[in-house]
């Protein structure tokens, strides 16, 4: 008895398919929002930023639709095994995408503030981080559509690189603020933008782990990669005085 792809009850298969499509579409919208938000920062495009902020409700609507569909399927179909994991995964991924949408909207909002003051040099680091975030998101969403565990794990690993970029941008921004207090306003917004991008990476990592659970039935083994060191970063003369053991203490 091979397990064919279709259910004996075809309407159930159609409903599951529809749920997956909703998640895929929502992922597409979230990707577009992140891209536009980054562009708004890079091009100092206030109009585009406003568009991103206005479009955030679309992502929220997707999440509500997915929540409702999930609830209905759980109540009416009593799903098992792969079907159950499929439905739970949709719910979890939708929650992550919704957060990603919020971060994109926040980036857009801050880009408007940034556009009103003189550009500062660390802003050049945003497109690089942005590109990487977009690549990770694309890989993770592809992994979801293709049910590709390898791809999901590879994307999860890349979150490390993103954390490294964030840490270096963080240091750069701090340096600029110390140099000239007039940089503090734009640099603070930049800092939040970078933090938002880093958080988007974390949610993409969550999605990668959900894809692993969906396909394999278990979350991926081992610690998730982490190299965001900004929580321990201290700039200035006493930098050398931030020893490793202080760091590990903070971690423990």
């Amino acid at each position: 008895m091979p397990a064919p792809d279709t259910h004996t009850v075809k309407s159930f298969a159609q409903e599951l398919h529809r749920l997956t499509n909703l998640v895929t579409q929502m992922g597409g919208v979230a990707e577009a929002q992140v891209e536009s938000a980054i562009q708004a920062v890079v091009r100092r495009d206030v109009e585009l930023a406003a568009q991103v902020m206005q479009s955030d409700h679309r992502i929220d609507e997707y999440e509500r639709a997915i929540d409702a569909e999930t609830l209905r399927l759980l109540a009416l179909r009593q799903p098992m095994a792969i079907d159950l994991r499929e439905i739970l995964s949709a719910l979890k991924i939708a929650a992550d995408l919704e957060r990603i949408g919020d971060y994109a909207a926040n980036i857009a909002k801050r880009s408007i503030a940034l556009a009103q003051v003189q550009a500062v040099r660390p802003a050049a680091g945003v497109p690089r981080m942005g590109r990487m975030v977009q690549e990770i998101m694309k890989e993770v969403l592809d992994a979801f559509i293709e049910r590709d565990v390898e791809k999901a794990i590879a994307a999860r690993q890349r979150d490390n690189d993103l954390d490294d970029l964030y840490t270096s941008l963080f240091r750069e921004v701090l340096t600029y603020m110390m140099e000239d207090p007039r940089n503090i306003t734009p640099c603070t917004h930049l800092l939040f933008i970078a933090k938002n991008l880093e958080r988007i990476g974390d949610h993409a990592t969550n999605i990668a782990e959900t894809v692993h659970f969906l396909v394999v039935g278990q979350p991926p083994a081992g610690e998730r990669p982490k190299s965001d060191e900004t929580s321990f970063t201290v700039l200035g003369a006493d930098m050398a005085a931030a020893p490793d053991d202080a760091k590990s203490q903070a971690e423990g």
Partner: peptide
């Protein structure tokens, strides 16, 4: 068995894909 069966046949049966 009901969340992550190992055999394809088990999965097919409990999810109603049994042809």
């Amino acid at each position: 068995i009901f969340t992550n069966p190992h055999d394809e046949r088990t999965q097919g049966y409990i999810t109603g894909r049994y042809g």
